[in-house]
């Protein structure tokens, strides 16, 4: 009897676990199927065409792709140095009594939903950008800054974790030779934890590019490519968030599904690079 139960239990866990793979395959298939109409209508032009005009049934994703790339790039440029600074502070500078509370609060801030960062950005940051840089405040620049603040806690926490993997004995040896803290950081910690640190940045990049709510509030959803960062813009997730519930034709829907598929492929690629190339999974117990 217990032999049968044993088999049932083992197989149902296996079945459910395998279901995750099926689910992911299903997501890709469904998104692809729903994109077909748009793929047939526009082909490769979908990603090179800069005109997005639902009323004319013309859909070009270039402004959204451009917006995703630039806003994420801005966010990374602003967040990476800050994250490195915070991580060095937490792993080498902060007094033991300060390490835990500051570290934990940064981790807790990483748990705050992105919609809150977006709301804060809309009410408190948009006016500041408007006053300093001109324009209406709803802009690519604002989106990049809000995004950088949103990913900072996550990035700082994982960078610190990567730096903390450096064995104390290596650091102590360097200090014993008379190294300053900076010498230890630059010659011991960074070389030792390089792969982990870069992996953390790429992982944060993968998250930032798919982030919706933090930027939807402050970007404006304007399908126009402008080199002026204080102009309103759009990104792939912002377009989806603003237009999905309102699309009114098959081709319009299909184009939005193609955008979703594009976003999923981009983030899967970026996250896979981070995971497989830089962050080899550390098995617990090893």
């Amino acid at each position: 009897m217990s032999n049968i139960i044993d088999k049932i239990f083992a197989n149902s866990t296996k079945f459910i676990a395998f279901g995750i793979l099926l689910l992911v395959a299903w997501i890709f298939t469904v998104l692809f199927e729903h994109s077909l109409e748009s793929i047939e209508a526009f082909g490769f032009n979908f990603i090179t065409e800069d005109k997005w005009a639902p009323n004319l049934e013309k859909f070009g994703a270039l402004p959204a792709i451009y917006g995703s790339v630039i806003s994420t790039f801005l966010a990374m440029v602003l967040a990476v140095p800050l994250a490195i600074g915070v991580a060095i502070f937490l792993s080498e500078i902060a007094h033991a009594k300060l390490k835990a509370p500051v570290g934990v609060s940064i981790e807790l801030l990483a748990a705050i939903p992105s919609v809150i960062y977006g709301m804060w950005g809309l009410f408190y940051f948009v006016p500041i950008v408007r006053d300093i840089f001109g324009g209406i405040g709803i802009s690519m620049l604002t989106a990049g800054i809000v995004l950088s603040i949103m990913i900072l806690p996550f990035m700082a926490a994982v960078t610190r974790d990567a730096m903390n993997t450096t064995p104390d004995i290596l650091k102590e040896s360097a200090y014993a030779l008379g190294g300053t803290k900076w010498d230890v950081v630059k010659d011991i910690i960074i070389p030792y934890a390089k792969a982990g640190i870069i992996g953390s940045f790429i992982l944060a990049l993968g998250r930032a590019i798919g982030e919706t709510m933090a930027v939807t509030f402050v970007m404006g959803n304007v399908h126009k490519i402008s080199t002026d960062l204080t102009e309103p813009a759009t990104s792939i997730p912002v377009t989806l968030a603003n237009e999905f519930a309102e699309a009114d034709s098959g081709l319009y829907y299909s184009s939005l599904f193609e955008l979703s598929l594009l976003l999923l492929v981009i983030s899967f690629t970026i996250i896979s690079i981070a995971k497989f190339y830089f962050l080899r999974r550390k098995r617990i117990g090893q």
Partner: peptide, 28 residues
């Protein structure tokens, strides 16, 4: 190998954009 693949795919899913999941559920 199957277990390792499932782990890898779940790790990626954890960081995948949630709005795309919305689009998928919309479709199904």
């Amino acid at each position: 190998k199957l277990a390792e693949t499932i782990r890898d795919v779940s790790d990626i899913m954890m960081s995948a954009p949630s709005i795309v999941i919305g689009a998928f559920v919309y479709a199904i």
